[in-house]
Every structure is written in C-alpha cells, then in structure tokens.
C-alpha cells in the first residue's frame, strides 16, 4: 500500500508546517522583544522550557485540563519574564549591546542548569491531553495536534499584530522602539512598556513550550536550546523585529527542514537551513520583510 509521490509531498508539507508553527510561535516572542529593545534574548528558548515544565506541572500535579494549564504556564512565564527583565536586563539598558547579550547568555545558562538542579536531567513525559485522533485526507495524515498548533500560532500572531498596530499600548510600544528617550519625554512610561513586552514575549514562549511538550511528548531542561536557536534563525529570516516576518520565517524554516529530510538528506537539514539564511541575508541584508535602513552620516 505504498503511497504515491504527491501523497508523500503533501505529507512532508504537513510535517513541515506543523514543525514550522512551533518555530513561528517561539520566533514571535523573540522578534517582539528584539523589536522594542534591540536585545537578542538568548534566554527565550529557556523560558519556553520553563513554560513546558509549568504546563506539565499544571496537568500532572494540579490535574488541570489543557486550556487552564496553558494559561497557567503563560502567566507563570510572563511573571518570570518580567522578573528577569527587571533584575538582569534593565540595569544594562544603557550599556553596550554585547554586555546585554552576554547577560542573556548568563540567564539562559542559569535557567537551563538551575532547572536541571530543580527537576533533574531526566526526561519527563507529557500526559496525552489532545485526543489521539488522526485525520486522513487522500492518504495525507495529520493529527489533532497539528491543527491545534497551526491554529494557535496563527491566532496568537494575529492578536499580537493587532495589539502592536491598533491599541494604545501597541502605539506606545512602537514609540519606545523608535526612540526610547523621546517616548519618555512624551509621557510614556517606558519601563512599564518594556516590562509589558517581556511579559507578552515570555507568555508566547510558554505557549510554545506547552504545545511542544504535548506534541513531542517529552520535555527536559535543555529542550529549549535547539528550538530557541531555530526560532532566532526564523526571526532573522523574516526580518527581526517584524511580527508577520517571524511567522513566515518560522513556517519557511519548518518547510525547508522537512523538504530536505524528505529528499533523503535528513542529517544535512540544519546546514541547508543556515545556508539559505546566509544567502537570503546576502541578497537582502535585513531579512525577507525587513526594511533596509540607510546609514545616515
């Protein structure tokens, strides 16, 4: 009952899109934080890991169902994000960007290995919260989780886009991103805005973490490293700081990976993804959706 070539191609596209929507979800938070304070928050992937554990705790120990558990994890990580920002990043706001980056690496290590002390390095398994329903469409199989994943990331992206573009808070965020000092002079509480940005970014990471835990079934304290890096690549691919760019970048990355694997070169897929990234950057140095800012003399 071997499947036809078209079936295979469509199956790989489904595979790629569901993987890509995880990347997109993480990349959204990444790009948002970057957009406002120009900080590459390398700890973002690890906040995702904390979110995955928070969700796991809510489901297995507190016996919550999926949505309350998701909310629990998002709130917990939003708080964590704000605390991290206040303690580690705020004092460095006027220091060099590289100092802030090193601090972010420090926070990332702290979350990874602090987490390991707390919950041990052992892999935990997520209880099944989604029904194990499979849908088969002309031989192309996708599961309930694939749909939830794609829907969640699309909805969150749209919500985020609306928040940033059409609400007062969003206007303030864009003002801070454009010129922090001028925004302060205009009566915007920049500290609160930046904290708010971190809260949203971390909540998004938590959502991604819970979904990833549910989807791949296993979580461990180092699970955030690779997806974090991939999401960063996705954000840059789309043009870092641009919300729809992160979404498109994430989906593209997922598709590239699954197509390369589908062609039988699974161990090369990350190399191909990076190569495409470098080529895109050489042709369009600020990403697919980025605007090229001309340097003023």
């Amino acid at each position: 009952m071997g499947s036809s070539i078209t079936q295979q191609i469509f199956q790989q596209i489904v595979n790629g899109l569901s993987l890509g929507s995880i990347y997109a979800l993480i990349a959204l938070g990444y790009t948002m934080v970057y957009g406002i304070i120009k900080l590459i928050n390398f700890a973002h992937g690890d906040i995702m890991m904390v979110g995955a554990y928070a969700g796991w705790y809510a489901i297995t120990v507190l016996h919550l169902s999926f949505l309350p558990a998701l909310l629990f994890a998002m709130v917990a990580c939003a708080l964590l994000g704000v605390v991290i920002e206040r303690i580690a990043y705020k004092p460095l706001r006027n220091a060099s960007r590289i100092a802030a980056l090193i601090t972010a690496i420090g926070v990332s290590l702290f979350l990874e290995y602090g987490g390991m002390l707390l919950v041990t390095a052992q892999v935990r398994t997520y209880p099944p919260v989604f029904p194990e329903t499979m849908y088969s469409f002309h031989g192309v199989i996708f599961k309930y989780g694939d749909i939830v994943m794609l829907l969640t990331s699309t909805i969150l992206m749209v919500l985020l886009h609306i928040t940033v573009q059409y609400t007062k808070m969003g206007k303030a965020m864009r003002a801070v991103s454009f010129d922090k000092d001028a925004a302060l002079l205009m009566g915007i509480n920049t500290n609160n805005i930046i904290s708010f940005t971190f809260a949203i970014g971390s909540a998004l990471a938590a959502a991604a973490g819970v979904l990833m835990g549910v989807y791949f079934n296993t979580i461990d304290p180092l699970m955030g490293i690779i997806p974090g890096l991939k999401a960063f690549v996705a954000a840059v691919l789309g043009g870092i700081g641009i919300i729809p760019g992160a979404m498109v970048g994430g989906l593209m990355l997922g598709l590239i990976e699954s197509i390369v694997s589908g062609l039988g070169a699974s161990t090369w897929r990350d190399a191909v993804a990076f190569l495409i990234l470098i080529l895109v950057l050489i042709v369009k140095p600020s990403g697919l959706f980025g605007k090229n800012v001309r340097e003023k003399v």
Partner: peptide, 15 residues
Amino acid sequence: DKDFRPILTRIKAKN
C-alpha cells in the same frame, strides 16, 4: 532531533 516524521514519511512510502 525530535521530529522524525520526514524520514518516517519516506519509509512509509516504501512500505
């Protein structure tokens, strides 16, 4: 690696 569906899809096609 955590996502093995791309390689499994290839194997499935060969049955």
